[in-house]
């Protein structure tokens, strides 16, 4: 016989500890609050930070959406969804608008989020200064002294080497004008969505034992120089081969037959929605 797990997997003490850290994180936007990351049934580095936040937040009536790099059906997203669903019995969804809680790995959904939603991001490396300083004691000190020369220097070196800032993802941001924060490995395309966001954004790093947050309506500025302004990935002249959407984050794929690059929406549920709504229009018009 299998014992029934406790609601939301955690014991109540663990939830309380995460909840306290979360409230502190919201009160100090962008600051990484240490917390006692629990052992989870998935390996550290596979979204345990996000999962722990989700489990501390979730209630019986919540609807959950989990995405992994834009996809609802990828292995990581499905197993996290299953774990939460089996221990809480909540409803899950693919639709961004229907969800109360959205746990995401490396993407912010294309559909704008509302004030009643919470976005939980999984973070592998919460420390933006780690590439320049290996010691936690020192990076904490740099944050306390508002010393972000290391972060600026990284971008400067990229400009020297490549002629532009070459952060593919996880481009550092200034939160509320005080803390430099790793926005988790979201593409630069998603950085502006954090600025003055309607929804609360919580970030959890399980392996690194940190929780941090961007409250709604908070200034989030991507680090950039005056002569090298911040720029998002450009998909000018390209559109999704399935739904035809432009102005969204596109994945580049290679057409096996022609060998030419083709583009496709990275956010699968958004793409599906576009296709469905178009089909509905087609059906309605042909019926008439």
């Amino acid at each position: 016989m299998r014992a029934k797990p406790h609601f939301a997997f955690f014991d109540e003490g663990s939830k309380k500890e995460i909840r306290r850290a979360t409230l502190k994180a919201v009160a100090i936007p962008g600051y990484q609050v240490p917390f006692a990351s629990r052992e989870m049934p998935i390996a550290r580095g596979w979204g345990t930070g996000g999962l722990q936040l989700t489990l501390s937040l979730i209630g019986k009536t919540d609807v959950l959406k989990v995405i992994d790099q834009g996809a609802d059906e990828s292995v990581n997203a499905v197993s996290i969804k299953k774990l939460v669903q089996e221990t809480t019995g909540v409803q899950t969804t693919d639709q961004t608008e229907e969800a109360d809680l959205i746990q995401s790995r490396h993407r912010i959904p294309e559909t704008p989020m509302t004030k009643d939603q919470i976005l939980v991001l999984q973070v592998p490396m919460p420390e933006p200064l780690r590439p320049v300083e290996a010691r936690e004691y020192m990076t904490k000190r740099m944050h306390s002294e508002d010393d972000y020369s290391g972060a600026w220097l990284m971008l400067f070196e990229q400009i020297v080497k490549y002629g532009k800032t070459a952060t593919a993802a996880d481009h550092p941001v200034y939160v509320n004008g005080r803390y430099v924060m790793a926005p988790s490995p979201i593409p630069r395309f998603d950085n502006p969505r954090m600025h003055q966001s309607e929804a609360l954004i919580l970030l959890g790093a399980g392996r690194e034992k940190k929780i941090y947050a961007v409250p709604p309506f908070t200034n989030v500025e991507s680090l950039a120089f005056e002569d090298y302004p911040f720029a998002v990935e450009s998909f000018k002249g390209k559109e999704c081969q399935l739904c035809g959407s432009a102005h969204v984050f596109l994945d580049e794929l290679i057409d096996q037959k022609t060998g030419e690059p083709v583009y496709q929406c990275n956010d699968t549920s958004y793409c599906m929605e576009q296709l469905n709504s178009r089909e509905k229009v087609e059906v309605e018009s042909s019926y008439a």
């Binding site: 909840r19 979360t22 409230l23 609360l200 947050a213 409250p215």
Partner: peptide, 10 residues
């Protein structure tokens, strides 16, 4: 908790 979090973030 969710109400507190809602009020703390807003």
């Amino acid at each position: 908790y969710r109400k507190l979090l809602h009020s703390m973030s807003r």
